[in-house]
Measured scan of single mutants.
Amino acid sequence: MFYPNSPQTSPQLTQIPYGQQYAMMQRQIQQPYHPFATTEPQARLYPYHYQGPIQQEQGGFITQQSTAASPQYVQMRVTPVDQSIMSGYPNQTANGSSSSSFNYNIHPQQQQQQQQQQQQLRHHAMPVGSVPLQDDRYRKQLIVNYLAPDVTSTDLHELFSRFGELDGARIIYDKQTNMSKGYGFVYFCHAEDAKEAVERMSGYEFHGKWLKVGYSTNPLNIVPSNSSPYVHAGSRGAAG
C-alpha cells in the first residue's frame, strides 16, 4: 500500500523548493479562506456584503464582478436614472436638479381664491374633541361614552347635575331594538360647569363602566337656548 506522503511516492527534499517541504498533501497545500485577509477597505468593513468592485458596462447597466450573493443577503441591482424623465418638472436647472418651490404660472386672482378656499376649509374642519370658538353652545354640550346598558337618562342627569344647572341629558337608544347604544349627551347651562365635568368625570366608574367624557361637536345635538329642557323620564321611549 502506498500513501500520498510515503517515501516511495514523495520526491527528495532537495528537489522541493524551500517553504513547501512540509506541504505535501493536497489539504495542506490548499490555503484556508480568510474573509478579512484583503487589501480593499470595503471588504474589511463589510465582509458579507462586499463582492468586489463595481464596473460600468456598455448599455448603462451596473453589474458586479463577483458571483451571486448568499441567500441570506439580498443584493440590489441599481440602474442609472434617465434624465429625460425629470425634464417635465418646473424650475429645473441645466444640471438636472430642481428647486423646492414650484411655479405653475397661476393667475394671481386664482391663487388668492385657492388660498381663501383653504382658509375656509381649515375654519370649518374641526378635529374630534375640539371646541370651536365662534359658538358658545359647543362648550356646553358633552358626550358621555361607555355607558352601561342599564343607565337611563334620569341617572345621567343626576350624575352630572352636581356640577351645575343642566339644560338636559339623554341616552341614545336603538330604534329597532330599543336598547341603549352605550353613549349619551349632557347639556349644561354654563360653559364653566361643562369644563369642570369634563375634567372630573373622564375615567369615572359608573355602573361598572369607566366613562369617557368630552365635548360634543355635532351641531345636530345642540340644544337651542330658547327651547324647553328635555324630559328626564326613566322610560326608554321618552328618553330616546
Rank of each mutant, 00 (worst) to 15 (best):
P229V: 07
A233W: 00
S6Y: 12
Q120Y: 11
S216V: 03
S101V: 13
Q109T: 05
T152K: 02
H124A: 11
Y3V: 09
P71F: 14
Q141D: 00
Y230C: 01
M126Q: 11
N95H: 14
R77Q: 13
S101Q: 11
H207S: 04
N178L: 05
T154N: 10
S70L: 13
S100T: 09
R162P: 12
D193V: 08
Y18W: 12
P11M: 09
V198R: 10
K181F: 12
Y183H: 00
G184S: 15
Q176V: 00
D135W: 15
H107D: 02
E192W: 00
G129I: 05
S202V: 08
V144W: 04
Y138D: 00
R162C: 13
L133G: 04
R44P: 00
P71V: 10
Q118D: 05
Q21A: 07
F36I: 06
P17C: 15
A23F: 12
I29W: 15
T217V: 01
F206G: 06
L211D: 13
V213M: 07
Q28P: 10
I143G: 05
Q65A: 05
F185T: 13
F206P: 13
M126N: 00
R137V: 01
M76H: 08
H49A: 07
D155G: 04
Q72F: 12
T38P: 02
P53S: 09
Q116Y: 02
R77L: 14
R162A: 11
I85R: 04
S98H: 11
P80Y: 02
A191H: 12
K175R: 12
V78W: 14
F185L: 09
S99K: 01
A94T: 10
Q111R: 08
Q83H: 10
N145L: 02
S99A: 14
W210Q: 01
F185W: 10
F185K: 09
A43Y: 06
T38M: 15
D174A: 03
I29F: 02
G88D: 00
Q30K: 12
M179L: 06
T39S: 04
S216R: 01
Y204M: 14
Q112W: 13
L142F: 14
P53D: 08
Q26C: 09
S225N: 11
D82L: 12
S99R: 05
Q56S: 13
I143M: 07
E57M: 00
S225W: 09
Q65W: 13
G208F: 10
V81T: 06
E196L: 12
Q114C: 02
M86G: 00
Q176P: 06
Q31L: 13
Y187L: 08
N178S: 05
H232W: 00
M24V: 07
Y215V: 02
P35G: 13
G168F: 12
E192V: 14
H190Y: 14
S180P: 07
L142D: 11
P80W: 14
Y183S: 06
N226G: 12
S10R: 04
F102P: 09
D174S: 06
S202R: 03
Q75V: 13
P224T: 14
A233H: 15
P132D: 02
Q176M: 15
R44T: 14
G168W: 01
Q72C: 09
A37N: 01
P17T: 05
Q111M: 15
Q58F: 15
P11N: 13
Q120F: 07
I16H: 02
L142Y: 06
G208V: 03
L133V: 00
P229C: 09
T79H: 01
P35H: 06
Q92Y: 13
A37Q: 03
N91A: 04
Q20N: 11
R170T: 12
K209S: 03
A148C: 10
P90N: 09
A125Y: 11
A69M: 04
S216A: 05
T93G: 13
S66Y: 09
Q55K: 10
Q65R: 05
I85P: 03
G203I: 11
R200E: 06
P90E: 00
Y48D: 02
Q55I: 10
A125C: 15
L156T: 12
R236C: 05
G208R: 06
R139E: 15
Q92P: 11
Y18V: 08
Q21Y: 06
Q119S: 12
R44I: 12
L13Y: 13
Q110F: 00
Y50F: 02
L159D: 15
Y89M: 15
Q109W: 14
M76A: 07
G19C: 15
E196H: 09
T154C: 09
Q113V: 05
D82E: 09
Y46S: 13
G19V: 10
F61H: 04
Y18S: 10
T93I: 04
T152H: 04
Q64K: 06
S225D: 04
P90Y: 07
G234T: 07
I172F: 03
I54F: 07
G240W: 11
Y89Q: 02
T154R: 06
F185M: 14
A197P: 08
D193R: 09
Y3N: 03
R200A: 15
G184M: 02
S153D: 07
G59L: 06
Q109S: 11
S228K: 06
Q31M: 15
A169H: 02
F185D: 09
S6L: 11
V131Y: 00
S6F: 11
Q8F: 10
A169P: 13
P32D: 07
A68Y: 14
L121E: 10
Q20I: 10
Q31S: 11
G88Y: 14
L211N: 02
Q117N: 12
P90T: 12
W210F: 02
Y146R: 03
P41K: 01
Q109H: 06
I62T: 01
P132F: 15
S130A: 05
T39E: 00
L211E: 13
F2D: 08
I172M: 00
Q116G: 08
G208W: 05
Q56Y: 02
D174K: 09
A191Y: 00
N5Q: 00
Q116C: 03
Y33C: 05
Q28I: 08
P80S: 03
R200Q: 06
S180Y: 03
A69I: 14
P108S: 04
F61I: 07
T39H: 14
S225V: 04
I143C: 10
H34E: 03
Y22I: 12
P11W: 11
G164F: 02
V128W: 02
G182S: 11
Y22Q: 14
A191G: 08
D150Y: 13
N221M: 06
Y173M: 06
P127D: 03
G52Y: 06
T14P: 08
M201G: 06
P90R: 08
L147E: 07
S225H: 00
V81C: 15
V223P: 04
H124P: 01
P229I: 10
T63P: 07
Q110S: 09
S87R: 11
N5W: 08
F163D: 11
I29R: 04
T152M: 14
M76K: 05
I172G: 01
A148E: 10
W210H: 12
M179Q: 10
V198H: 08
E40L: 09
I171D: 15
V81P: 02
F185S: 01
A191C: 07
Q28F: 10
Q118W: 13
I54R: 02
L133F: 05
M201R: 01
P32L: 11
Q51M: 05
V81E: 01
V131A: 05
T14Y: 09
F206Y: 03
G184W: 06
T63N: 12
E199D: 03
Y89E: 06
V144S: 09
N221Q: 11
F2T: 01
T67I: 08
H190N: 10
A69Y: 02
Y187W: 00
R44F: 15
I62S: 06
D150I: 02
P11E: 07
L147W: 15
R137F: 02
P4D: 13
L159A: 12
N95S: 12
Q31I: 11
L45S: 03
C189N: 13
V213Y: 06
H123K: 09
S100V: 10
Q134D: 03
G240E: 14
P127F: 13
P47W: 05
H124L: 09
P41E: 14
N105Q: 12
